[in-house]
Simulated scan of single mutants.
Amino acid sequence: MKRRLYAGINILGLTVAIVSFLAIALFIHHEATYDSMYKDADRVVRFVQRFSMGGEEQVVSMTPSALVPTVMEEIEEVELGTLVFTYSSVLVDAGVGNQEEDNFAFVDENFFEIFDLKLLAGGEGKLLAEPNQVVLTSSTAARYFQRPFEAVGQTIKIDGADFLITGIVADFPSNSHLNFDLLASFITTRHGKNPQWSPANYYSYARLSPFADPEVFTQKLDQMVEKYFGEEMRSYGFEVKVMFQPLTSIHLGYSQLKDIKPAMDIKNLYIFGSVAIL
């Protein structure tokens, strides 16, 4: 009471410090828990490719459409796999004219078994098992329909083609490296019907067995690459290696070419943490 100015400065400084500490702690928690909300996230991996030629090396986060069906068939450590094919933008017409949508992707029928977003409507059988089917997130359905959960069973046009809405799911969390508004059935696409080893335009994920040995799994991936690319690599003088990274380390790992979301350098979190403690 005698030194109100001095006491006020101290209290204000302490308040700012505590609020700053809590804000930074929440940010660090948000970044450090990327993709951990999915079931069995610790067993889910994303495949990437490393290309080497003439002393130069590139790591790309996209793979061929044949990779997932092949590893599911030939490598016993893989329980389930799924493919994602992103589009830069599409035109969507739900009866009120075309609207441009940027967060659109084709995914296969296993997608929601690995990325288990909450199902809000629909869901008889697999959501995207047939061509020309689409699933909307809840916020997207609300933009196009007055009664969003009654959109299941209705048809919308995507780039002029009719797609049947088979489900409404919760929005992707903000700390997921995947973030789409509309998800259409991958079997609609050419490579969905006929997977190929070229081109490499697809994001590939797999859920591994609880007893999978990473070293053994790596050896089997190398053998698979030799089986399908060995002769071609020796003929043209390049090397390709298929690698995998844990789902929960994608965001805080090294940035790859063609990443869906830019990665965060984990050093930044250490810097923020130090500032918070100080």
Rank of each mutant, 00 (worst) to 15 (best):
F217L: 15
I187C: 04
V78Q: 03
D159N: 15
Y87P: 00
T63I: 05
G95W: 06
A200F: 06
T86E: 11
I260D: 04
Y228Q: 11
D213L: 09
D181K: 10
A129K: 08
V169Q: 07
L136H: 03
G192N: 01
K241C: 05
I266E: 07
V71G: 10
S52A: 11
L221P: 04
L269P: 00
I260E: 08
V59G: 02
I165E: 04
F104C: 03
T70L: 08
R46C: 00
S235C: 05
A7Y: 01
F27Q: 13
M243W: 10
E231N: 13
V44C: 01
T15K: 08
I28D: 12
Y6C: 03
H251P: 01
F211D: 15
I266F: 03
G54V: 12
Y254H: 14
L247H: 09
V19H: 09
F229C: 06
L117D: 00
V48H: 10
V68W: 06
P262W: 02
I260P: 02
L278A: 11
F104S: 00
G55W: 11
D42K: 11
H251M: 13
D159Q: 06
I11H: 07
V96S: 14
F47K: 01
F104I: 04
I18P: 07
V45F: 01
F180V: 05
F180Q: 04
K261D: 09
R190F: 08
K157E: 13
T218A: 15
E231D: 13
S89T: 09
G97E: 05
G160N: 09
F106K: 02
E74N: 12
F106Q: 01
S209V: 10
I165D: 03
V71D: 07
V152R: 00
G253N: 12
H177Q: 12
F47W: 01
E113M: 06
A66N: 09
L14A: 15
L183C: 03
D116M: 02
S36D: 11
S65F: 07
D159W: 06
F85G: 04
T63G: 08
Y202V: 11
S204V: 05
I24F: 12
I165N: 03
V225D: 07
V225T: 14
F106L: 06
E76I: 10
E31D: 12
I156W: 05
S249I: 09
L128R: 00
A206Q: 04
